[in-house]
Simulated scan of single mutants.
Amino acid sequence: MASIDVASLQKFDVWRTEQMGRKAAHSTINTHNSALNRVLDEAELRGWITGSIRPTLLNKGRKAQKRGAFSLDEYQKIYTDLRTYHEKTFHPGARETREVMRNYVLFLANTGIRHGTEALNLKWSSIAWVKKGDERFLAIYPSGKTGPRLAIARDRTERFLDRQRTMNPALVDKTLDEVIEAKTDDYVFKTRSDERIDYYNLARNFNQYLEENDMKIGQDRLPRTLYSFRHFYVTQDLARGVTSDQLSSQLGNSAQVVDRYYSKLSPLMNAELHSGRAFVKKSIAEDEEVTVVEAVALVAEQPALSAAAAKAFDMFDAGKIGEAALLAALGVSRQGYSATDAVTVRALASVEAGTLAESMLIKIITP
């Protein structure tokens, strides 16, 4: 233990990079350092080393790279193209990989499960039907970097899993319900050759598809990967009004992480709200010929908001100012401040849109 010094740690860093084939991420090195620090703590407690010779652990890992997102139109194009994409190669292995890739992409986009360890290690025994009242829901029990959890898949996921079942020679004569009921101890994503899908072959074929269709880089100038479908899943749920708290347990992330990574997407996801179209309600008669616009009545029901407060909220929702600036613009710290009904309604709308955290809401309405 006493021989561990800075030079030793530098050699270890080189060895780690060689073993991983890439520079370790910042979070990975944090995990390694945490484990090593516990060993050093024990060594110091037992008197094997002293604090003066204990090495300081550094972290020069690469920062996590942001991944691009797919729009709904791009997602629809992808899953439509993947129906026949396997027919565009004569290589047997690539053909089978692309068949699985279609189901895999749809699975990721409809569950929010992490690409890689979580999804590729999934077994049929980790899938179950759960009952709530008279209804049943498809439950997935992935195990990833935050440990095992329960995730509820969108209803359509049943079709993708059933199609994937038919590719497994050992399961082709059983129904999906029978496979789930039997808690079959076999990997979900396997090729027709009964081979577990390979991570690198899967990524290589998907990247090839993106490059062929000029979709590798999005409008945000960020690269897209299979992991982007988790991003897509989150943005779709946030746009539907699902809160970050509700998403956190499904994703295996804290609500704070969801807020931090996805709050900047709010303006686009809630374009109807920011453009004013959310205040226009259309009611179409059975013959689809009569449309009633109730915008005037709806706007009249909303309490008036000062020009400065409205501008501050607009800039905050667009990600142009932070929380401190919003509070300052609203005058929360001023003596005698009291949130008006207009400010409260606008703050609640921002919470519903996913741009404002509940802690900030409380500061605004109860200073």
Rank of each mutant, 00 (worst) to 15 (best):
K174M: 11
A182W: 10
T111Q: 03
A182L: 10
P223Y: 06
I217R: 10
Q208L: 12
V179I: 03
I217D: 10
L210C: 11
A153E: 00
T117K: 13
A109W: 01
W129P: 01
V188N: 01
H91M: 10
K183M: 08
E96M: 15
I113P: 07
A139P: 05
F90Y: 12
A170F: 15
Y187N: 03
V179K: 01
W129V: 00
K88P: 00
K174Y: 13
D185E: 14
F90G: 11
F107P: 03
V188M: 01
T175N: 05
A170P: 00
G147V: 05
A151F: 01
R136Q: 12
R154C: 00
T166P: 02
R204M: 07
N168K: 02
T97C: 10
N168T: 10
A139Q: 15
A151V: 04
F90E: 14
A109M: 11
R102Q: 12
V179F: 08
W124G: 08
V100R: 02
L176V: 07
V100K: 02
S228K: 05
E118Y: 08
D214Y: 01
L120Y: 14
T111P: 07
T84R: 01
K88R: 13
D220H: 04
T111E: 05
E135K: 01
K131Q: 14
E87T: 12
K145H: 12
G116V: 04
V179R: 00
L210T: 04
I197P: 06
N103L: 06
M167W: 15
T225F: 14
E212C: 03
L122N: 02
D173V: 04
K123Q: 13
L138F: 15
G112M: 13
T111R: 01
D220I: 00
E178R: 04
P142I: 03
Q219N: 07
F107Y: 15
P148S: 11
R204H: 11
N110G: 02
K145C: 11
Y200N: 15
E211A: 07
E158R: 00
Y209N: 07
K131G: 02
T175G: 03
A151S: 13
K190C: 15
I180V: 09
Q164K: 04
V100Y: 06
Y141P: 02
